[in-house]
Design a protein around this nucleic acid. Structure first.
Length: 262
DNA sequence: ATGGCCAATTTTATTGGA
């Protein structure tokens, strides 16, 4: 860590293979302590552990073919790694991994999108309910916990560019936001939004239709923390530069700094 | 400049993403 500041980031990279060069460059320039990745889109054995180790990061991953896949990077050792709801990586969809890092339970989550057929929206809500059950079983709101990832939820109306454009997506529906509120009732809070009360700060922009140049985005990637950790958050931002240039992900990293003494 | 989808696979179409 840099002095007593712990920097945690979350980034949906949309394929670790395509994004590796950009990721390594970004790690080199910004030196976060912990990075939560989503949509690595490769099987676990295809995750580039050696390249990341050479860059100074331990990594743990849980992936699958084609879709989903999550990972954690850390400059300091990780322990107590849990994959999926049971901890053993038994589900069909690889959307959850966590580890203990510097005394913090850090979780990388890729919540379902929920668009398309109605059963997909039902799965989104089911998955969130299973995650909450997992938290009750494996974590405590009295301990430092960071739930990071692509939530596929825009918590407030001003977390989307316009409701005309995104009002029908699962990301803004009352049922989705009600499910998110249950995490808040358990003890997690968004560390980002208090630093950006003005709103209209986004973390995802559609590849299509000039989404980024027109700033047609949504804020759907989040870092939530329990009180002991959240109260130490001194800064948070979206690194919009990573949405620019050659071969960007459609998501930009969300980064938060904590005055966290180990 | 920040530019008219992208990535993986079942690859010369299809599916999912949000």
């Amino acid at each position: 860590m840099k002095g007593s500041i712990l920097i945690i980031a979350t980034w949906n990279v949309n394929s670790i293979k395509v994004r590796l060069e950009r990721l390594l460059d970004w790690l080199d320039r910004t030196s976060p302590d912990v990075v939560c990745l989503q949509e690595i889109k490769t099987i676990t054995s295809g995750f580039p552990q050696e390249e990341l180790a050479a860059a100074g990061y331990e990594s743990v991953a849980w992936g699958q073919k084609t879709y989903n896949g999550v990972a954690l990077l850390s400059r300091t050792p990780m322990s107590d790694v849990l994959r999926g709801f049971t901890g053993k990586g038994e589900e069909d969809q690889a959307r959850l991994i966590s580890a203990r890092i510097n005394g913090v339970r850090v979780i990388s989550a890729y919540m379902p999108n929920g668009a398309g057929e109605p059963d997909r929206f039902a799965y989104k809500l089911e998955w969130m309910a299973m995650l909450l059950r997992h938290l009750r079983e494996h974590a405590s709101p009295d301990e430092p916990v960071a739930l990071c990832g692509d939530y596929n939820i825009a918590p407030f109306d001003d977390d989307v560019c316009s409701l005309e454009m995104f009002g029908d997506t699962p990301h803004v529906q009352p049922e989705t936001r009600a499910a998110l509120a249950e995490f808040q009732q358990w003890g997690l809070s968004d560390v980002f939004r208090p630093h950006h009360p003005e709103g209209k700060v986004f973390s995802w922009w559609d590849y299509r239709m000039l989404g980024f140049p027109k700033n047609h985005g949504m804020r759907i990637d989040h870092i939530y923390a329990t009180q002991s950790l959240a109260s130490m958050c001194t800064e948070a931002h979206v690194d919009r530069n990573e949405r620019k240039g050659t071969k960007p992900s459609d998501h930009a990293p969300v980064v938060a700094a904590f005055d966290w003494r180990v």
